[in-house]
Design a binder for these strands. Structure first.
Lengths: 128, 128
DNA sequence: ACAATAGGGGATAAATTTATCCCTATATGA
DNA sequence: TCATATAGGGATAAATTTATCCCCTATTGT
């Protein structure tokens, strides 16, 4: 796997939470596991924009950071279930706060985020 | 500047907040501006691990996303002050929640984050 | 026999983000 | 005259993260 070449900053609480929460899909993984989608294949279906590979990698990191546990059932075809640890559960209110803010300001956020895209998209139509 | 080659996912509140909050230093910038460090040079002194360049880039994005405003005083040497917009202020409780969680679990987080580093650091001493 | 499902990872490419280096401008103090 | 402070950005390199592609195991259904 990839080996870090720089040391992480761990000065304050914001640095620390950043280390475990950064990753394009991690927050969504935690949330979906929280609401009951425990199996890898379910998670992949809930997050179709992420590749199988990346979800596995991020799930591995979440496990490494003790936010989730992975239970393997010795059956065929294989069955695996992820669950939040007690530690992971303490993150749920924080994630809920993030999602709620995003929901509350949905329209405005869409606007400001799409500004750049819109500017360049308009360039061509206006010239034709 | 860099031009995106893929379209962002904007399906839910978590996607939306991610778009404006992702960036290694953005949250800290918002926080420091919130607590009164308004000038670029102050921010750079408060966040010495970030390069001047990156802070400017992330401040530009925060401004583009309407979370902060930039006021230029026409004096020499130049003086600039950033402030949170009303919109930006609504993020403060969310950021506070993130930081608080990180602070509350500081020891445990340090442990799990440093696990990997520790493993490889120990390898050499143990063999000598 | 062959495809599909379930779970997983190595190798490598592409995208994205950060870091480095250098250059601009003006005023003040040594 | 030269260094320092203030603010900012272009060009490019390095680091990091995501995406793609391919391969493996074993069972069930067609």
């Amino acid at each position: 796997m990839y080996e870090r070449k720089t040391t992480p900053n761990l000065n304050c609480g914001l640095d620390l939470i950043g280390e475990v929460l950064y990753g394009k899909w991690k927050i969504r993984l935690l949330w979906f596991i929280h609401v009951g989608h425990k199996r890898p294949s379910e998670l992949q279906r809930k997050i179709p924009d992420a590749s199988r590979r990346v979800l596995n990698m991020q799930l591995n990191e979440l496990e490494e950071h003790e936010l989730v546990t992975r239970k393997i059932y010795p059956v065929l075809p294989p069955k695996v279930e992820y669950s939040l640890t007690e530690f992971g559960k303490t993150l749920i209110p924080v994630i809920a706060a993030l999602g709620q803010w995003g929901d509350e300001h949905e329209d405005r956020l869409r606007n400001v985020i799409l500004k750049q895209a819109v500017r360049s998209d308009l360039a061509v139509p206006l010239l034709s």
